[in-house]
Amino acid sequence: MSKAFIAEIIQDSTGCTGVVATAAAGDLIAAIVGAIKKDGGFTLPSFGTVRVAKTKARKALNPRTGGPVKVKAGKTVRFKASPTLKKTV
């Protein structure tokens, strides 16, 4: 799924212009990112839950050299599909 796809769906369902639909798609994506940053995640009923998870520092291997590399602790985004979505797919 891409921003263009979302804009196309908005344009088809509302009958607005492509420019307005693209702006609305951008605003939608910005709102989702803002909710993840502010609240640490969000839930979209019948679709799933997105949350921020902390990752621990660890050792990994450099695939090019095969040597060990230290990976710092950080954050990642996790998605859990709702039971409704799982049943549909």
Rank of each mutant, 00 (worst) to 15 (best):
M1V: 13
M1R: 07
S2A: 10
S2W: 04
K3N: 05
F5A: 15
F5P: 01
F5H: 12
I6G: 01
I6A: 07
I6D: 03
A7L: 10
A7M: 08
I10D: 03
Q11K: 14
T14K: 09
G15A: 08
C16R: 09
C16A: 09
C16M: 09
T17S: 09
T17M: 07
G18Y: 10
V19D: 13
V20A: 08
V20R: 04
T22Y: 08
A23T: 09
A23V: 13
A24H: 03
A24C: 09
A24T: 10
G26E: 15
D27E: 11
D27N: 10
L28V: 13
L28F: 10
L28Q: 03
I29E: 09
A30M: 02
A30Y: 01
A31I: 05
A31W: 05
I32M: 15
I32T: 07
I32W: 03
V33P: 02
V33N: 12
V33A: 11
V33W: 02
G34K: 05
A35H: 02
A35L: 07
I36K: 04
K37R: 06
K37Q: 05
G40Y: 01
G41L: 00
F42A: 00
L44K: 01
P45I: 06
P45Y: 10
S46P: 06
S46Q: 15
V50P: 08
R51H: 04
R51L: 14
A53R: 13
K54C: 03
K54Y: 01
K54L: 09
T55L: 10
T55S: 15
K59I: 13
K59G: 13
A60G: 15
A60Q: 08
A60R: 07
L61A: 11
R64P: 04
T65S: 04
G66R: 01
G66E: 02
G66Q: 00
G67R: 14
G67T: 15
G67N: 14
P68K: 12
P68A: 11
P68H: 06
V69E: 11
V69L: 14
K70N: 15
K70Y: 14
K70P: 12
V71I: 14
K72P: 10
K72F: 06
A73W: 02
G74W: 02
T76R: 14
R78L: 06
K80T: 15
A81K: 03
P83N: 15
T84K: 14
L85G: 06
L85K: 04
L85T: 09
K86C: 07
K87D: 13
T88I: 12
V89F: 05
